[in-house]
Write a protein that binds this DNA or RNA. Structure first.
Lengths: 345, 345
DNA sequence: CATGGTTTTGACAACGATGTCGGATTCGCG
DNA sequence: CGCGAATCCGACATCGTTGTCAAAACCATG
């Protein structure tokens, strides 16, 4: 299983290794004739450049890091997939690094991948994109990095996001349109800035419609299915319950829905439920859950694009490195017109 | 941001770079006194070896590849996480490579990661672990590889698996114990060998109990939630329906459960449903689904162990490279005693 | 205190690519 | 035809580490 090196190709094509290198990397200043000859030999020998040698000598690693809190979540899977595909198109590779901020010593792993792997760039997923300590690690080492849906957008970091505020507002408007007045809101974890923006969007829509938010109906969950179940119990226990619930993500919305089913509350006739994310869980029930489609994979792909783009690498901060991608309201079966609302005030 | 090299450490510690290298790699034959001195300097300077230089020189990449069909599935997430954690412990890195066998040219990506990244080993997830063409790629390049739950276990491949046959048998026995006689079975996709073994286990248990399998009740799905919905419609349409359904995975089981709910069939009173995998979906409904816990993360971790173990790398085939990990029957709310079975034959 | 054997250490040459830079070739144009 | 300016090409050093191998230091022993 002899491995083919650039020298072999050069010898066979009757040129110098450097010329082969030029052809491989698509540089200028190579006669078309020679270029083709080299390409032919490359194909014949099925030559593949050694990524390590290349990185060592060029001081580019062709590696991007994806730093993420919980790599098992469906969110992570979508993000990772989007990044992976785009990396492939750009002939980059992706290294996934779980980061658990609650575990002391997490810095070490991050430093290691920066120093040891010489990452060409980093994608930092929520919620850890809001940890200044983490961002500083990249800043200090001058590693280009893009934050996904961060709460603030530092100048020298790239950022990709969606309009959480606007989307939550749309959803709330939609619920109001359906006649709902008693709308509950289920928050995400405190450290998750997107969830805060969603709550603000919710409140803004309510305010615009001149509906007072009933604070008893604003509860905090942790994005998990289980917390949806628990909060469902809390919200749906008594007779004085909301006619609609807007949850910060789909997993919790699903938990709410299941609780409603257990309690024989008809969805959407007696209760409307809305989620956020368009996760698999929003389709894994009956009725399916009305939600906001979040462009997760697209955001990740855009992050890759920014990182790989030489013009970003050259000049940071860069004006085009702050993107906002479009979302969409996905209406499904879990929401409907507010029933006889008269009996509740 | 000067990067610290091994030379810097050597100079500061007053030894040769080679000695530093020895300390870093934990080799023998270094005086304790010098070893400590070097370690101290390493800590002081926060020196991190350059992974590329190391790989280039040692012809080991410290990289493992995870080759997987559908990297977005929950299965993939669990496997990946298990592998990732263990890789970290062993100071390896993991590169995830989606492989879509239905897309021509897939070989190219695989060859590329083998040749270009010089993978030290590969983990091949189902169902693509059953594609001889793929396995041959690794065999030809002499890349150590471990198959996850393959249908056959080639001598020169490692393998980690669970007892699909036995587990399915246990589940079926359990349903029979509950008094069920009309048990439907929902198969997985044809190319998925584990699903075939599960079916065999099901049939074996039925045969042992001397219950004839009603072939109208054996249907093929594709592991998706959607196919569970569709097959649910097919199975639960008429009055002549099974009293229990055993689905090859949890997503389909969830689909079946949702269909039952839509049709107002009480689970588990009028219908028992069992799944396989212990995926998140098995807990994302009410009642929660009885299932088989499959040690996904553990299998992936074991695969890493095998690949990293020098004794495996030295002698392939290796006797200890074929592992079977334990599963568990997880009884939850979706299964119960068979009701008044008298009215059905 | 020589002797032979074991540790311990370092000089040097890889590993396989690319950056630099100067020399060769070609081109354009007076 | 001649001459400067592009354009093309290759020799060589270099990236940061480890493998090889021989020299140096140490050890116990007779």
């Amino acid at each position: 299983m002899k491995t083919v090196t650039i020298k072999d190709v050069a010898a066979r094509a009757g040129v110098s290794p450097k010329t082969v290198s030029r052809v491989i990397n698509g540089e200028d200043h190579v006669r078309a004739e020679i270029r083709e000859a080299v390409q032919r030999v490359v194909a014949e020998l099925d030559y593949r450049p050694n990524a390590f040698a290349r990185s060592l000598s060029s001081s580019r690693s062709y590696l991007l890091g994806l730093f993420i809190d919980d790599p098992v979540s469906g969110y992570a899977a979508d993000v990772q997939h989007g990044a992976l595909i785009r990396c492939r198109e750009r002939s980059y590779h992706l290294v996934v690094e779980p980061v658990d901020l609650s575990r002391p010593g997490w810095q070490d792993h991050v430093r290691d991948s920066i120093a040891s792997l010489r990452l060409d760039g980093a994608i930092i997923a929520p919620p850890i994109c809001d940890a200044p300590e983490l961002i500083d690690l990249f800043r200090q080492s001058a590693v280009p990095h893009v934050l996904m849906a961060p709460s603030v957008e530092p100048e020298d970091s790239g950022a990709v996001r969606m309009d959480d505020h606007g989307a939550a507002r749309e959803m709330t408007d939609y619920l109001i349109c359906l006649g709902h007045r008693h709308i509950a809101f289920v928050q995400g974890p405190e450290n998750h800035s997107a969830s805060i923006r969603r709550e603000e969007g919710f409140r803004a829509a309510m305010a615009t419609a001149a509906i007072a938010v009933d604070e008893r109906f604003v509860l905090r969950g942790d994005f998990s299915f289980r917390s949806g179940l628990e909060l469902g119990e809390a919200l749906l226990r008594g007779p004085d319950r909301p006619s609609a619930i807007f949850a910060c993500n789909d997993d919790m919305a699903l938990g709410l829905l299941i609780t409603a089913i257990k309690r024989d509350i008809q969805v959407p006739d007696d209760l409307s439920i809305a989620g956020f994310d368009d996760a698999a869980s929003s389709r894994a029930a009956w009725p399916q859950i009305t939600t906001i489609r979040q462009p997760k994979a697209e955001m990740a792909a855009a992050a890759v694009d920014i990182l790989v783009d030489p013009s970003f690498r050259r000049t940071i901060p860069h004006p085009d490195a702050h993107l906002m991608l479009p979302h969409a309201l996905v209406v499904r079966g879990s929401t409907g017109r507010c029933g006889t609302d008269a009996d509740r005030v």
